[in-house]
Design a protein around this nucleic acid. Structure first.
Lengths: 209, 209
DNA sequence: GTCTATAGGCAGATAGAC
DNA sequence: GTCTATCTGCCTATAGAC
C-alpha cells in the first residue's frame, strides 16, 4: 500500500532506457544547468543516438518535465522517510539539511535551485514545477517547525512560514556557494548556524570569541 | 583621489558603445544566465551587428570577464559607500542586505550568484572572478562583524568568518528563491530573520506564536 | 526501439568593404 | 567603428529503414 510494487520487475537494477536517460539528464541538469547540456551529451554518454532520445522524450521541454517530476517524487519520499524514521523535530531539521549535503557531495546543486537561477529561460510547465517544489518544501518545514515548537523542541519568534522560507533559501544559497569552492564542510557549517537559532538548548549567542 | 575622474568626459550620459554593450550583457546575464543569452540578443537590442560586438569584445569569454570586472568594481564601491555613509555595524548589515534587494527589484539575480549556478560551464578566468567576488564579500562582512562585536552592537557565537559565509549564502539563496515568485518582500523578510540573530537588542527568540 | 541521414536554425566567430 | 556576407559547428528535431 505505502510502497506500491514496481509494475514490471524485469531488469535487475533500474536500467531501462528511459530511466538511464533520466539519470544522466538529471545529473547534467544539476551540474551544468538545464541550458548547459544537450541531447548529444546524453546520447554520447549512453552510447545511443539523439534520435533514440527523441523516441523516449519528444523534446527537451518534455524531458525537463520528466526530470522534475521524478525529482519531486523522490524528494517527497525522502521527506516521508524522515518523518517515519526520525521522531523529534530537532533531528528532523538536521536530517533535512543532510538531504542537501548528500546532493552537494555528488558535486550537484539542488535541481530546483539550479532551475530557479535559470527560471526566466524555462518553459512554463517547468516553471510551475519549480514553484511547486519550493512550496512543498515550505509546507513540510512549516509542519515540522510548528510541531517542534508545540513540543518545546524548537523555538523561533516569527511565523513558521517565514522561518521555513528562510531555511529553504539559506540551505539553497549555502549549497550554491559551497560548490564552486568544492567545499562540503562549508555548506555544513552554514547549515548548522542557520538551524542553531531554532534549538533552545544551544548556548546563548553572546560569548565573545 | 578617492573618486578618479573619468578619463574622457565626452558623452553626456555614460553611453559609449562598450558601456552600452556591457549594460545590456550584464542585465541579460543576471536575468537569463551567461548561457542564456547570445551575441545576437545584445546586438538586436542595441541595433548593431554581432560583428560590431566582436570588434569591442573579441569573444563571449572576454565579454564575460569584462562584465565581471565591472560588476566587482561597482560592488566594491558600494561597500566603500556603506562604510563612509553608515557609521554603525548594525545598520551596515542592513545596508548590505539592501544592496541585494535593489538588484532583485530589477528582477535580476546577483551576477555572481547566477554564475555560481553555471560555474561548471564557465571559462577559467570567469570562475576565478566569481570566487574572488565571494571572498571579497566574506572579508568585508568579517571586518564589519568583528568591529560590531567589539563595539557591542553585534553578537554572535562562532567565528566571524563562518557568520560572514552564512550571511552571503543566506542572502544569495533568499534572492534565488524570491525571484521566481516575483516577491521582493519575501527576500526582505528572509534577510531580516537572517540578520536578527546578530542584533543584541532583538527580542529573545522564545515567544510562542 | 534503435539506427542513418538530414533538415533548419542559431551559436560564436571572421574577412574584408566602407 | 560599423557594416555585409559568410563560415563552421552545434543545437533540437524529424523521416524513414531495420
Amino acid at each position: 500500500m505505502a510502497i506500491p510494487a514496481s509494475p514490471k520487475p524485469r531488469q535487475r537494477r533500474s536500467s531501462d532506457t528511459p530511466t538511464r536517460i533520466l539519470d544522466v539528464a538529471e545529473r547534467l541538469a544539476q551540474r551544468r544547468g538545464f541550458n548547459g547540456f544537450s541531447y548529444a551529451d546524453i546520447a554520447s554518454e549512453l552510447k545511443i543516438t539523439t534520435a533514440s532520445l527523441h523516441y523516449h522524450f519528444a523534446g527537451k521541454a518534455q524531458l525537463g518535465r520528466a526530470i522534475l517530476a521524478r525529482y519531486a517524487d523522490r524528494f517527497a519520499q525522502a521527506l516521508d522517510g524522515i518523518e517515519s524514521r526520525v521522531p523529534d523535530a530537532h533531528a528532523r531539521l538536521l536530517a533535512y539539511a543532510e538531504l542537501y549535503a548528500s546532493v552537494l557531495r555528488e558535486r550537484r546543486l539542488c535541481l530546483c535551485g539550479m532551475l530557479a537561477a535559470e527560471y526566466q529561460t524555462l518553459p512554463k510547465p517547468m516553471r510551475d514545477s519549480v514553484i511547486h517544489f519550493f512550496d512543498e518544501n515550505e509546507s513540510w518545514l512549516m509542519k515540522t517547525l510548528e510541531a517542534g515548537r508545540a513540543e518545546g523542541q524548537l523555538r523561533f519568534s516569527g511565523s513558521a512560514r517565514d522561518a521555513a522560507r528562510m531555511i529553504v533559501g539559506g540551505l539553497e544559497g549555502a549549497m550554491l556557494l559551497a560548490r564552486p569552492y568544492g567545499d562540503v564542510p562549508r555548506f555544513q557549517c552554514a547549515a548548522e548556524q542557520l538551524l542553531q537559532g531554532f534549538f533552545p538548548n544551544a548556548a546563548d549567542p553572546q560569548s565573545g570569541d
